[in-house]
Design a binder for these strands. Structure first.
Lengths: 336, 336
DNA sequence: TTGTATGCGTTATCAT
DNA sequence: ATGATAACGCATACAA
């Protein structure tokens, strides 16, 4: 672990000189700068992030907050893909990633405490309960934050285009001839509200009837809940001809339930998911769904967060809505 | 951000006293200790990890190295589940997690450099190319490491029981009557070698013929490679009646290829995967596979790593082999 | 029992 | 152009 002091000693110069040379300060002679750089390379010098952070109050690290209420956490394919893209974009820009949590060890802390404890320069907030006071406290602190799929006034948010996604799904199944469309939606979140609203608007615009009983409360990423609601829907006197699921993964629950009931997709009933994860595309019949652009979502989140960190004065918070694309599969048949 | 100095000032004591009181030093009077603790709580004091790390040379943070050659990285369900369990176990024990990479920003560094840069107390190494010199350098350094699915002499390794897994799969399909069993294996890694060896041993023990042409080189988590090898196998004059895939995910490639060829699973050919991820269990027919215990693997890795960090003298490296379980699905039919 | 002094590695200010 | 010095927040050896 060679330090700046080692280099200074070897070259017979002061530590200040070495530091300046390494950081490209203008008041160092080109020859000295070169000597220092050469020595640093030879001695495998690497700055100590800890010392630097202590001195500068900046860590060159960002925190990522990922708490999935269903407990599936990182293993939720949609979010792990986003994490992956946040990570690679951050690295390129010189930041590494720390996973943020509550209550690390015996320390009782909330998210903001953890962020301060590690001096994270900013945080990407994804997949959390946005009503959690700890989350609110973090967002309202002066730590730069970027939220995913949730808007906080005065902050940057990256939104997957849920409204357009839902609208295009409804239009798609409408064009296939469906008029009795049920929607199993996720628990009450901003995303869910957006989708519900878009669902209703699209149905109205197309003149599709909207019986209340076709709107079922499911849970994201929860196959049991979808199974239950699927059973409920199909036992209705007037069952839907198409069911929209909260997400691709939860469709599995419905799929299995339908099989149990002796119903085939899309022979007896059509279905569509949301997310566009590989899982859905691997199913047979291939799932009709709306693909969210996880790669761009993650990259943009990291990019904007780092912009805010590095140029706080010029930074203007914005809401970005990223389009996805309809992925027509084989689970929506022409309705009779 | 209140510091130890703020507390000292408010209480009219020295910073040393505050520090000692907070750390439960024995040479502080109970009353003083109590006063300090109370003030700290009131002032929302939280230690600054950076300063502490600089002083102590320990960060209370561990690094996690996760590089998937196929580029799927964290989005590989098997690994993201392990990461999730490493994370929750570490948190409980007072450590948080930094994702380790090469070349962060303009700094050219390898894994060990990154670990030193952040002063990680230890590293869990998973899913990497273990022949990469950067990985070797990290393992051979004196940073405590725990590897997953790969043994390095003198280090702790957590092994999923690949040998038993492969053996039980072979036995299972044998009992279903299969004698022409092909194995599409992953790229050449320790895990692959273990499975290949177990496959051969099991076949020998059961008296199953092993034509070389039934042993195909696939790639983990790569559907295209499995598709290609599947096509090859099924065009053989004497095609197998059962194909074992590198993992559940890559089976998808084979499944789709078989469908394209007009062959049904398990009607025309049987198949099995490896991993036991939800994806496989969601498929219809449900995939026969061997489930690896991601939860225990991750927890044990974190537990052992932290033991080594905290009690380096007493620590004895060990190799742990964690059993999984056969998950009989519907993709292996009784052979004629 | 408490306080003083020192240093961890770095950078920034101010002299020289 | 270079160097001496202080400071970031904390913990510890040693002094009082």
């Amino acid at each position: 672990m060679t330090t700046i002091t080692d280099i200074a000693r070897r070259l017979g110069v002061s530590r200040a000189t070495v530091s300046k040379a390494l950081n490209g300060a203008p008041d160092i002679s080109p020859e000295t700068a070169e000597r220092v750089r050469k020595a640093a390379a030879e001695m495998d010098y690497l700055p100590n992030a800890t010392a630097r952070t202590l001195k500068l109050g900046r860590s060159n690290g960002i925190g990522v907050l990922f708490v999935d209420k269903t407990g599936s956490g990182l293993s939720h394919e949609y979010f792990s893909r986003i994490l992956e893209s946040i990570k690679s974009e951050s690295e390129q820009r010189g930041y590494d990633i720390t996973l943020i949590t509550k209550d690390i060890g015996s320390f009782r802390m909330d998210y903001l405490d953890h962020v301060n404890y590690r001096r994270c320069d900013g945080v990407v907030i994804a997949s959390v309960d946005f009503t959690d006071p700890s989350v609110i406290r973090l967002v309202e602190s002066d730590v730069p934050t970027v939220t995913l799929d949730r808007i906080f006034p005065g902050h940057t948010a990256i939104m997957s285009d849920n409204a357009t996604g839902m609208a295009s799904l409804v239009r798609h199944v409408y064009e296939k001839g469906h008029r009795r469309i049920a929607f199993i939606h996720g628990e009450d979140t901003y995303v869910t509200q957006t989708r519900l609203q878009a669902f209703r608007a699209a149905c109205s615009a197309l003149g599709i009837p909207q019986p209340d009983v076709y709107l079922r409360p499911g849970i994201y990423h929860d196959t049991a809940a979808s199974a239950k609601e699927t059973a409920f829907l199909m036992r209705l006197p007037d069952p839907p001809t198409c069911i929209l699921y909260p997400d691709d993964y939860s469709y599995i629950g419905g799929m299995n339930e339908l099989e149990r009931m002796g119903l085939s997709v899309p022979g007896d009933v059509s279905a569509a998911g949301f997310d566009g994860i590989p899982l859905g595309q691997a199913l047979r019949p291939r799932l009709t769904t709306y693909r969210q652009d996880t790669d761009r979502i993650g990259r943009l989140a990291a990019e904007k967060l780092i912009e805010e960190i590095e140029r706080p004065e010029e930074y203007v918070p914005e809401v970005f809505t990223l389009p996805g694309e309809l992925l027509p599969g084989k689970t929506v048949a022409e309705a009779i």
